[in-house]
Structure formats: structure tokens, C-alpha cells
């Protein structure tokens, strides 16, 4: 009994060490999985202002209303442009599916044509509305698409972060690797560097403001800087509401045309 107790104590101590090590040093894959599965609410609405700044400092501003929600295995998003004037009322709707290999369904409504049209899905590496964000940058990239490696810990804007390097499994990916600084407290990426296929730094993403809304960490301000072209895109969310109870029926042809 004594020997047994001694053995149990040793085993328990080893287990505690292992657990402590795991808490202190999770793997890169575990960190990115935690970012991916962090609570994001069932639905979200807000106003997104996107400011494009070229190398000479000339600005172009796009403002759009956005609603999104998860309904079973389908994530739905509807964006309606408020400005500039020539695209006012234009709306995009996207339905994406958890099912592997199933492409998104997308529609566009152009007020001039007064018609909702199903369109072919944008390539994930295409840039969104002339910005520095690709559709993939804006979406939830599955952690299983990359090989992750924890490279260290650093502080970003006063927050302790894990530094994780991610290398795409797909050799045709537009990035050769990305490096992400993940807040240890929020499971939220605060900074990311994107490297082109030649291995040179292409873009830097900085999150300058995040807020907890209804218990969910929401990125409020972000800036993507294309360092090779010295072009920037600032994104700012306002009027953000989480779990407001957006019905699935809001993602409809009627909603697009209103």
C-alpha cells in the first residue's frame, strides 16, 4: 500500500509536470486551433468602413453594412454598400459550407440592373474589393490547411503573445508562410506577417483595437499593409452587435434588394 502510494505520487507529479508543460508550451497547431474555435457568436451585425490608402497617401473609402450568422453547417454573410455613391445599394451574399470541398454560393445585386444574380465564387486568393485583403485573409482558414510551429513568445502592444509560424500544405498557395502573434489571454491574432512565394515579406496585418462584445472578442480596427507596394487597407467596425438573433431568412433575395 505504501509502495503503491509512493508510485501514485510519482505518477501524479509526472502528470502535473506534463500538464504544466502543456499549458506553458502548447504546440503551434493547438494555438491556431484555439484561435479557430474561439467563440464568435451565432450571428453578428455591424458597419464596416474600409479605407484604401495608396503609396501617395490618396484615400478611397468604402462603407458597408454587414450581417452574418451560422445556421447548422452553413455560414451566411450579407454585405450592402452604403458608399461610395456609385456602388450604393450594391449587395453581396455568401453562403459557405462546412462540408469539405463544397464551394461557396454567392450572389450579387446591382441596383442599376435591379436583378439578383448568382455568381461564380471568387478565388480565395483574389483580393476583396480592391483592398489588400484576400478573401482567404478575411475568412476562417482551417488550421488543418497549414503546418504550424510555435517559435516563441513576444509582447505586442503590451499583450503577451505566442508566435506561430504556419506553412501552407498546398505548394500553390499565394503565401510561402505566415507568422502570427496570438494573444495568450484572448486566443486572438494581434499581428500577422505574410511572405510571398519567394519568401520575401509581402504584407503585415496589425489589429489595433479589439473589444469584448457580448462575451465575444471582436476585432474593431485592423490595418493590412502591403509592404512591397506600400499600399494600406484600414478596416474599422462600428455598431457591432453579437447574438442579436438574426433570422436565417434575413439572408434572402428580398434582403439583398432592399
Amino acid at each position: 500500500m505504501k509502495n503503491l502510494s509512493k508510485g501514485a505520487i510519482i505518477l501524479a507529479t509526472l502528470a502535473l509536470f506534463a500538464a504544466a508543460s502543456a499549458v506553458a508550451e502548447p504546440t503551434g497547431a493547438e494555438i491556431m486551433l484555439a484561435v479557430y474555435v474561439r467563440p464568435q457568436g451565432n450571428d453578428m451585425s455591424g458597419v464596416l468602413t474600409m479605407t484604401l490608402v495608396d503609396a501617395r497617401g490618396k484615400e478611397r473609402v468604402r462603407s458597408l453594412k454587414q450581417i452574418s450568422g451560422s445556421y447548422g453547417s452553413v455560414d451566411k454573410k450579407l454585405m450592402t454598400f452604403q458608399s461610395p455613391a456609385d456602388v450604393r445599394g450594391t449587395s453581396f451574399m455568401n453562403w459557405s459550407y462546412a462540408e469539405t470541398g463544397k464551394g461557396d454560393d454567392q450572389w450579387i445585386y446591382l441596383p442599376a440592373l435591379k436583378r439578383v444574380k448568382r455568381i461564380s465564387s471568387e478565388g480565395r486568393s483574389d483580393y476583396f474589393m480592391g483592398s489588400d485583403f484576400t478573401y482567404d485573409d478575411l475568412g476562417d482558414r482551417q488550421p488543418s490547411e497549414d503546418i504550424h510551429k510555435l517559435t516563441g513568445s513576444e509582447t505586442v502592444d503590451g499583450e503577451a503573445c505566442w508566435v506561430v509560424e504556419s506553412v501552407p500544405k498546398d505548394p500553390k498557395d499565394i503565401y510561402s508562410r505566415t507568422v502570427t502573434w496570438v494573444s495568450k489571454a484572448k486566443n486572438l491574432g494581434l499581428k500577422r506577417e505574410y511572405f510571398d512565394r519567394r519568401g520575401a515579406l509581402l504584407k503585415t496585418l496589425r489589429i489595433s483595437s479589439s473589444e469584448s462584445v457580448a462575451g465575444v472578442w471582436v476585432i474593431m480596427k485592423a490595418e493590412m499593409h502591403d509592404v512591397q507596394k506600400d499600399h494600406r487597407t484600414r478596416m474599422e467596425f462600428s455598431d457591432v452587435r453579437i447574438n442579436a438573433g438574426i433570422a436565417e431568412g434575413e439572408f434572402s433575395e428580398r434582403a439583398m434588394t432592399r
Binding site: G103, Q106, K117, R118, I119, S120, S121
Partner: peptide, 8 residues
């Protein structure tokens, strides 16, 4: 209209 792979 419908989506089939990359085609509408």
C-alpha cells in the same frame, strides 16, 4: 441557375 464547381 446553379453553381457547379467553379461554374455558374
Amino acid at each position: 441557375s446553379g453553381s457547379v464547381g467553379p461554374f455558374v
